[in-house]
Design a protein around this nucleic acid. Structure first.
Lengths: 342, 342
DNA sequence: TTGTACGCGTTATCAT
DNA sequence: ATGATAACGCGTACAA
């Protein structure tokens, strides 16, 4: 016989009363089942089921001084790159018997701050974050106050925390070297805002490759957009299409795949053939890249590994007194597809 | 002067001591700032900053009996459909000054159960969930024990909770009516597993449209796949391509866009022209659909609205004693693109 | 094996 | 504005 809804949740005390045992016995059933006889244990478990008893995690962690949860504050939950990173974290968390909470800052510093504040107050075991602004003192403050924190997808040397990232300068170099190899001599870098480190690093790599090939600086143009979204890519496409074909870049290197998607869409819709008239390189190699209108050449990052490595670092910091902060750097890899292979 | 790392977080008691005031005053500074003079308030705030004081949410919510967080347990965080739903929820949560935690069950009932258990123990204000199995008694049990719960993207009549969804039967009908209108007389439904309600509903709608048009039942074939992913779509594509062209369906209606993407990829790679030799309709109209190799005809669901509506229902249940459970059904809409427009 | 008493950090109440 | 105190639910030493 199942009872109806009972909004007030029962406590160990209620369970004890219902089972006709002492409070301590109930606690033992929960935490050291071996110390209690099978008969009474069953009676207690029965009472718990009847009353709909649910352990109060607040009380537990207040008592214990810590929780069993990790959190990942994502920069953009609608970008598959970050959900893949999150999946890597989830796997690692699961292995360590932790739950993982995902928060989405959606690129807004205010929302990020709110989430961080809540997480710190919750005393989560560790925070993973791809921050809006990695140099924010907020991050240092949190780390200094004692919550293990790892920055994902950005390196911050000399910080009070670990970070894991992929070498974005190298990634940018790979992309543009590829374009140079394919014969392009006028290239646009499409990305922004430049306040985002990933963007500046990839741009920097592009410039390095350009300079190393001895090409004139002014032929690597910057097409700035204000967010790394498909919408921005489309607006960049409009601007690009507006340039007379004699001066127009023959290739675009986009700061991420979403931008590349938007650019591809817009270019196609105004009749610019990809890759014949415009080659495109994206970044991240999200799963959709291969299924794009023209399968997208992209710079692949080890997304799941990034997440896993980050999770291992927080867990180490949380559990290992001898923990030392470290910066882990992964290596990207170019995946050539039709969008650059005329 | 900022102090070094201090793993032990300070409590209100420590702050009171440091500021030379009583514990009650610190509490007042935190909760009723007006009841304390500016001078002492400043002194207390100063002490809090110096000590790196962080409110302990466990103690707070133990005392208050409830938290200020909602949670959404996603079925598949890597599917943009669900992240869009999550964004709708996030907006609503933000408006109600709640934080939102995202959990990913990744389609696994065990992980889902773990997350639900943790959330219930945390006494979150409400749980939103797109369940692996909506008929699971787990959901009823949670609702019955008092945590407001809303099922998203599934309707469950007569349950002890609210649900919001989109009319999948109608969606399936729209998709297949469109194909029939375009002249198709052999169509494949690609989806699975059939244990997923969304899949069976869309299939059911497809069959209704087929029957209504008086077409022979055997010409609407079922191509079962075991997950709603691009990989499954590719494997379905292989099977489809293996059918002699005389008997091969001229169109495929896929249970979601990811499957459609995979199918499109595979079909293209074996030289099957879309839409000439194979038309494709997807489902969800995720943002990538329009940017696909062949822009994808798809059944659009109001994703953000779905999330917002669900969030409003949990919030109502959490705050309004007169709350009545309800089932909200949205209407889908067909968006025709090149993948069906020869 | 079982029962009791205390403390975790916060908030609220009550006098002072 | 302060000080003292009870309560939230749980875990655990310690006593029975």
């Amino acid at each position: 016989m199942v009872s109806a809804r009972q909004p007030l949740s029962a406590s160990v005390k209620d369970v004890a009363a219902a089972a006709g045992v002492s409070l301590g016995t109930v606690s033992n059933v929960l935490n050291r089942p071996d110390r209690v006889t099978a008969a009474t244990r069953e009676r207690v478990e029965r009472a718990m089921a009847d009353l709909g008893f649910v352990r109060n995690e607040s009380a537990r962690s207040l008592r214990a001084g810590r929780t069993r949860t990790l959190a990942y504050v994502m920069l953009d939950a609608s970008n598959p790159f970050f959900t893949d990173v999150a999946q890597g974290i989830e796997r690692a968390a699961e292995g360590a018997e932790m739950s993982l909470f995902l928060c989405n800052s959606d690129g807004r510093a205010t929302r990020e701050a709110t989430h961080l504040e809540h997480l710190e107050q919750q005393r989560v075991q560790g925070i993973l974050i791809t921050p809006v602004e990695p140099d924010s003192s907020l991050l240092d403050a949190i780390a200094r106050r004692g919550t293990p924190l790892v920055v994902v997808d950005r390196i911050r040397k000399g910080g009070e925390f670990c970070s894991v990232a992929v070498d974005d300068v190298l990634g940018g170099r790979l992309a543009v070297e590829h374009l140079i190899d394919r014969g392009h001599r006028r290239v646009a870098f499409v990305g922004g805002p430049l306040s985002i480190g990933q963007v500046t690093d990839r741009y920097e790599g592009a410039r390095q490759a350009w300079a190393a090939a001895g090409l004139p600086e002014e032929d690597l143009t910057l097409l700035a957009v204000d967010s790394l979204t498909a919408a921005s890519g489309r607006s960049a496409g409009e601007r690009l299409a507006g340039i007379p074909s004699g001066r127009r870049p023959t290739a675009a290197f986009c700061a991420n795949d979403l931008v590349a998607f938007g650019l591809l869409q817009q270019a196609t819709s105004v009749g610019l053939r990809v890759p014949d008239q415009l080659s495109i390189v994206g970044y991240d190699d999200i799963d959709f890249a291969a299924a794009a209108a023209v399968p997208l050449t992209s710079v692949r990052q080890p997304r799941q590994e990034l997440g896993r490595a980050a999770a291992e670092l927080v867990l180490d910091e949380a559990g290992n007194p001898a923990h030392r902060h470290q910066q882990v750097m992964f290596t990207p890899e170019l995946v050539a597809r039709a969008s650059t292979l005329g």
